[in-house]
Design a protein around this nucleic acid. Structure first.
Ligand SMILES: [Zn+2]
Ligand SMILES: [Zn+2]
Ligand SMILES: [Zn+2]
Ligand SMILES: [Zn+2]
Lengths: 168, 168
DNA sequence: TGCATGATGTTACGATATAACATCCGTTTG
DNA sequence: CAAACGGATGTTATATCGTAACATCATGCA
């Protein structure tokens, strides 16, 4: 069913995209990547990944926990979700947005990239980008300071195109 | 007394700098800036700023709270510190490090800059930088996406020069 | 002096994250 | 097959981070 989830995520990065396809695609790629690596994408982890992909808005661990509890009828414990998220982040299937304490599906798992995000303050969508200029600028300035880069965090808070029209 | 605080902050960005001077300088600039703006740098806010500047390591709100409580003998409430920090961040005297949920003194208050940090995973020091290449790369890619930038967050986790020598 | 405004105190609570230990379950191996 | 092993999950409790609501105090001004 095309466009089904537009109701669920009214501020998607591409406003009229088929988000069901985003989800299905993310799960398919996750299956393939984990199989390839011998990582165990268990039923629970796969369900958490699906819940993270529920929209393009970063979701808090406790929000995911609620979804999970509703699915199962019985309430789940925070650790259940945190452990699944830990696995998914390790595998590069999910990114943590530090400035929101929340998690969002990776747009390009498997590819080497450093996780840069444009986070809309109005609709909450996080657009993942991978701008080599940002990365090389970071690498250059780090080198000048003799600093060895492990994990760069780039999170740009602002307004996405759709939300600029609404509140100009 | 020169070098006094080397004991207190053994991993300062410039290993042998006079940190007392950092603190005094930060307080002097804060006084001047707030006077200039008509902002009220009260006794409490000034003390919190001093505690943030205790080292170059970002400190959590509750750590600052403990210091404050010890100074006064009586325990302070979290809100006391959070409100002071809110003021200091608004005035650009302190930055919040999102990836650590912690606060660090601004190296160049008053000047326009966007807050970029090299955060050492070993010693915990946060070196503040303001690389125009990073900022313009962010602006460029945001423009290409039609995204209006409000507040860029750049926090690079890695190893500072001193800590690379210790754990190569 | 009395008032207005902003700063601080007090209490309670909400949100985020992890520690410690038990149990389950699929795989390997004797 | 049975025993042993290791990773995944369940359970309970607790640590850490942050804010709401309301009272009180301080400061400057009419
Ligand atoms: Zn989508
Ligand atoms: Zn990604
Ligand atoms: Zn938006
Ligand atoms: Zn600064």
């Amino acid at each position: 069913m095309l466009y089904r989830n537009i109701m669920h995520s009214p501020h998607a990065p591409a406003p009229h995209h088929d988000h069901d396809h985003c989800i299905a695609d993310a799960l398919t790629r996750a299956d393939a990547l984990c199989a390839e690596r011998g990582a165990r994408l268990t039923s629970l982890r796969r369900r958490v990944l699906e819940l993270v992909w529920n929209s393009h808005r970063p979701r808090g661990a406790y929000a995911i926990l609620e979804d999970l509890s509703q699915q199962d009828g019985k309430p789940a414990a925070p650790l259940t979700v945190y452990r699944a998220l830990e696995f998914l982040v390790e595998q590069g299937l999910v990114h943590r947005i530090e400035s929101l304490n929340a998690y969002v599906g990776c747009a390009a798992p498997g590819a080497v990239h450093s996780g840069q995000f444009l986070v809309c303050a109005a609709c909450g969508n996080a657009i993942e980008i991978d701008d080599p200029r940002i990365r090389s600028a970071i690498d250059a300035t780090a080198a000048e300071h003799g600093f060895r880069v492990q994990r760069p965090t780039v999170e740009v808070r602002g307004l996405c195109p759709e939300c600029q029209e609404k509140v100009p």
